[in-house]
Every structure is written in structure tokens, then in C-alpha cells.
């Protein structure tokens, strides 16, 4: 059986919020080491990989591997029944068809139990190769969200060009064009590690969906290499992450 307790429901809400625009349904793979999720969006252009190691939880027990197929919108509806500072415990028996969620208020005066029906979902895991990114950029997650939002006004596509001088985001369309360049800052909120310059083009609406994870982390890590998917990674506290991968666009 699985039993996993988080000190605050807010964290779980943020995680589900970061997933549910890209994925409507997905499977949580629970094992002794923690909870993982991997899924493509419906159009198979992007992929989300999430990991919450057991250290993320106040209490964690998983005797046998369990796969929990979830409808994320339904899960969010249940989470909305909790206060943000409630502790949440999720549990499921082996071969369960329901997920139990228990919310406990800070002083333990109120306990609320919910059950969520589980789904039988096809599991379609992809092997993500270890990639040596030619450019790795760290920047404030709010800055990345702002750039993606602003560039979506101009075009469906954004060109990301990274070199030792900076990372440049460009978009152009009928309205006009936009170019935003960030260079490395002395205070370290933007950092660039560049082995060789890379320029790639991406669909901005996926980038905007990824920024739903902004509230999870102050910093976002971006990995770029020629002709491989873009990596956008948000850490979750000290022992977890959400990684989004986005296939580049190529010239017709």
C-alpha cells in the first residue's frame, strides 16, 4: 500500500496546477523511492517528467509499486476542498480503484476524508537520454514567465538564441517584432554556462503552459542543445522537480 503525507496542501495544488494544462490524465508511479510521473501532451510535442523523492514527504510508505491513474481536473476539484495549510495524506491499497485523500487542519480540529476514483490508463513511457546541453541557463522563474507571455503577443513561435553574451528570445509576426536579451548578472540571478552557441525555434504556447509551474520555484533552469528538445526544469523544494521537454520546430 501507499501512504504519503505532505505538510501543506498548497504544494500539491501547485504541482497539479503545473501539470493540468499540459496533461488531462496521467499516472503516478509510486515506489519505495518516491512518486514519479511521465507523460506527453495530447499532441505529442512536449513531455512532462515529475519526481517527488520520498524525502519530499513528512511521512512516506510504499510497500509495493503502485500506478495511480488520475484525472487531474478531478484531483484539483478535491484539492480545492482543502485549506492551503491543511496537511494532506494520500493513500491507496494495492490494486486499488480509489485514491484516499485526508486533509487535516493545522490544529487537528478538522479531518476531512475524500475518495477519488482511479482510472485505468495506458502507460506509454519514453526513454529520456542523458543530454549534455551546450547551453544551460538559470534565471528567475518569474522573468521566464514574463518573457513567454510577452512574446506570445507577437507570434506562435519563439526563437531562442543562446551564446556567451546572453540568451535572446525573439518573435515576429504581423504586429511587429520583439527581442528580449538577458545577460549574466553579477548578483547571479541570471547565469549562463555556454559550451557552444545554440539557436532553436519553439512553439510559444507550450512554453506558456510550462510557466504554470512558476509558483513552485524562484529559479528555472533551461537546457539547450542543437536538434534536441528544450529542457525547462523547476525544482520542487530540495528533493523533487518538474521537467518539461519541448520538441523544436524546424524549417519546412
Amino acid at each position: 500500500m501507499l501512504e504519503a503525507r505532505l505538510g501543506s496542501t498548497t504544494l500539491l495544488k501547485k504541482i497539479v496546477d503545473a501539470l493540468k494544462e499540459i496533461l488531462s490524465q496521467s499516472t503516478l508511479d509510486c515506489s519505495a523511492s518516491g512518486i514519479q510521473l511521465q507523460a506527453m501532451d495530447n499532441s505529442h510535442v512536449s513531455l512532462v517528467a515529475m519526481s517527488l523523492r520520498r524525502e519530499c514527504f513528512e511521512r512516506y510508505r510504499c510497500d509495493r509499486n503502485v500506478a495511480l491513474g488520475l484525472d487531474l481536473k478531478s484531483l484539483m476539484k478535491v484539492l480545492k476542498c482543502a485549506s492551503g495549510d491543511d496537511a494532506v495524506t494520500i493513500s491507496a491499497a494495492d490494486k486499488a480503484d480509489k485514491l484516499q485523500l485526508r486533509f487535516e487542519s493545522a490544529g487537528n480540529e478538522r479531518t476531512a476524508d475524500y475518495e477519488l476514483r482511479l482510472l485505468n490508463l495506458e502507460q506509454d513511457h519514453l526513454a529520456i537520454p542523458e543530454t549534455d546541453y551546450a547551453c544551460v541557463v538559470h534565471m528567475p522563474s518569474t522573468e521566464f514567465a514574463r518573457i513567454c507571455r510577452d512574446l506570445a503577443t507577437f507570434s506562435e513561435s519563439v526563437v531562442i538564441a543562446c551564446s556567451k553574451d546572453g540568451i535572446k528570445f525573439s518573435a515576429s509576426g504581423e504586429l511587429g517584432s520583439a527581442n528580449i536579451t538577458l545577460s549574466e548578472t553579477s548578483k547571479g540571478d541570471v547565469s549562463l554556462q555556454v559550451e557552444e552557441p545554440v539557436t532553436l525555434c519553439f512553439a510559444v504556447r507550450y512554453l506558456n503552459s510550462f510557466t504554470r509551474a512558476t509558483s513552485l520555484a524562484d529559479k528555472v533552469k533551461i537546457g539547450l542543445a542543437a536538434d534536441v528538445p528544450l529542457l525547462v526544469e523547476y525544482p520542487i523544494e530540495d528533493h523533487g522537480y518538474i521537467r518539461y521537454y519541448l520538441a523544436p520546430k524546424v524549417d519546412d
Binding site: 499532441s43 505529442h44 510535442v45 513531455l47 519514453l126 526513454a127 528538445p229 520538441a247 523544436p248 519546412d252
Partner: peptide, 12 residues
């Protein structure tokens, strides 16, 4: 042209 993510990451 938009490529699919599964042209980069293959099914296990």
C-alpha cells in the same frame, strides 16, 4: 514544422 517529442525520445 513542429516535430513530435517521440521522434527524439523513444518508447521503452
Amino acid at each position: 514544422m513542429q516535430r513530435g517529442i517521440d521522434t527524439f525520445f523513444h518508447r521503452m
